[in-house]
Each structure stands twice: as C-alpha cells, then as structure tokens.
C-alpha cells in the first residue's frame, strides 16, 4: 500500500503565495500570461522575469524542486530555441556552423520565444505547486459565478471536478489492484509487441470501467440519501474571503504591470 498518491503537484506550505486567495492567484497568473505576450522590450521582459523569480522565492519551495517540476518542458523550450536559430534569417550573420549561418535576429527571437515559454510554464507551475486542486475548483466556481445567468452549470461543473479529484486516488489504488490480479493470471504488461501490449490492457480496463460505474451508481444513491438535489437552495461551507493581505499583494501586482507598461516601447 503506497499512501503517497499526489494529485497535481501541490506542495504543502504556509508561504504568502500559498495563502493568497486562489481566485486572485488565478487572475494574476492569467493577466501575467497575457502580459508575457505584450512584452516587447528588454526592460519589460526584465520586469516580468524579476517578478516571476520573486514569486518563486516567496513560495519557499526549493528552487531545485521547481526546476524539476519543469523537467518535461525543458526539452520543448530548448527545441523552440534551436528551431528559431535554424529558420529565422534576420539581422547580421553572427557565426556559422557546418555551413549553416546563424543570424543575430534568430538568436534574439529564439531567446525571446524561449523566455516567454519558460515564464508561462513557470507561473502556471507555481499556481499548481501552491494551490490545492480543491481550492482551484473553488476559485473556478466563484469566478464563473456570473456565467450562471446564461445557464452555464457552474455548480455542477465544480461538483464534478471535486468528485473527480476525490476519486483519483481511489481509482489509482484500484488500477494497481486489478493489474496485479491480472498479472497473477498470466497477463504480461511489460513485454511483447505493441499489439500484444494493447491487448493486455483490455483485462485491466474492463474491470476498471465496471467498478467505476458501480461506484458512480452507489455514490449517486448515497448523495441522494444525503439530500442532494442540485445547486438550488444549497449553502456553501467553503467560502473564499479576501483578506487585506490579498488586496495589498494585488495592488503590488498592478504596480508591477504599470511599470511593465511604461517600459514597453
């Protein structure tokens, strides 16, 4: 039994960033991403990068851990950079490798796009590192509230998300159990041709689906027995309240954005 199933990448903590209202956090990340694409001068990039690094430091999560979290995208970032070196042909020729000319424009462009990409991934990673999935769900429910007017099922969507989060570890444990049971019946998940391996997945998927449906049925009954009848007339236990600190941080963020705007060319 491994009880260390981690959903998302949340790292528990008590830092300023952790405690920041999840709605504000999401809005800030959203605005930040838009502004990344509006940056057009060295100085404006510098402001964004400094802010991002400041955020990393404030989370009190070891930078090495954050870097490790970016691992899957390092490749993409480097790949984008090299791609730009190859295809962009602007500015002066800086140097040549194997008859291949590298232009100064390409270097700048490559650096710029890679930096944008890096900042984008870094900030969204920080969001998931410092916010529990359930808080993100709460924030979405709260932010999408206005959409209720156009009959968008905000409450149902949020409930669906939180139930999915609740059942991910359960289903992971179940997958482990069933795959072990089938391995004991001679199923080999590890070796064989692609076709054989795909075939080996059937004995795993069918029982998983059967059990998931059974769970869903029982859960629906339990929810009904506990008085669930949709969002109507429901009160809410989890409530998001803005604290003075949240407001201050947001003001700071706006100042950063204004500085950024001024430094654009």
């Amino acid at each position: 039994m491994s009880n260390s199933v981690i959903i998302g990448q949340y790292v528990p903590g008590q830092s300023l960033v952790h405690r920041l209202d999840p709605r504000l956090k999401m809005i800030m990340v959203f605005l930040f991403i838009i502004f990344i694409f509006l940056a057009n001068s060295w100085m404006s990039y510098l402001v964004l990068t400094l802010f991002a690094l400041l955020s990393v430091v404030t989370t009190r999560i070891a930078p090495s851990f954050v870097i490790k979290g970016l691992k899957p995208v390092w490749f993409l970032i480097i790949f984008t950079f090299i791609l730009h070196l190859i295809v962009t042909k602007e500015g002066d020729i800086l140097f040549s490798i194997w008859n291949f000319d590298v232009y100064s424009g390409a270097l700048w462009k490559g650096l710029e796009i890679s930096l944008r990409f890096f900042l984008l991934i870094l900030m969204t990673t920080l969001l998931t590192l410092t916010t529990t999935p359930i808080s993100i769900t709460d924030a979405i429910e709260s932010l999408f509230q206005p959409l209720k007017r156009i009959r968008f099922p905000v409450h149902e969507l949020a409930l669906m998300m939180s139930i999915s989060l609740r059942f991910i570890p359960t289903l992971m444990q179940e997958t482990d159990k069933i795959s072990k049971a089938q391995a004991s019946r001679g199923v080999d998940f590890r070796t064989g041709t692609i076709k054989e391996r795909l075939k080996a997945v059937v004995p795993l998927l069918v029982p998983l689906f059967v059990s998931a449906f059974k769970r869903a049925e029982e859960l629906a009954m339990a929810m009904e027995a506990r008085g669930y009848k949709g969002g109507e007339g429901r009160t809410k236990f989890r409530e998001l309240k803005l604290k003075p600190m949240d407001v201050w941080i947001f003001i700071l963020f706006i100042i950063v954005l204004i500085t950024f705007w001024i430094l654009r060319t």
Binding site: P133, I134, S162, R166, E218, L219, A222, K229, F237
Partner: peptide, 27 residues
C-alpha cells in the same frame, strides 16, 4: 443512512468537506 461500501459514499475531498456536503444540501 450509512451504506456498505466506505469509499462509495465519501463525497468530499477531505473529512470536513464530506460532513459539509450533507449540511450544504440541507441549506
């Protein structure tokens, strides 16, 4: 009502959220 399967009636992501679920339903 308390049902047979402990997992399939636990709605909340945490203990406190699960207790909240019924209370929220009843307003």
């Amino acid at each position: 009502m308390v049902f047979q399967n402990p997992d399939n009636q636990f709605v909340g992501t945490t203990v406190i959220d699960d207790i909240a679920f019924g209370l929220e339903n009843h307003g």
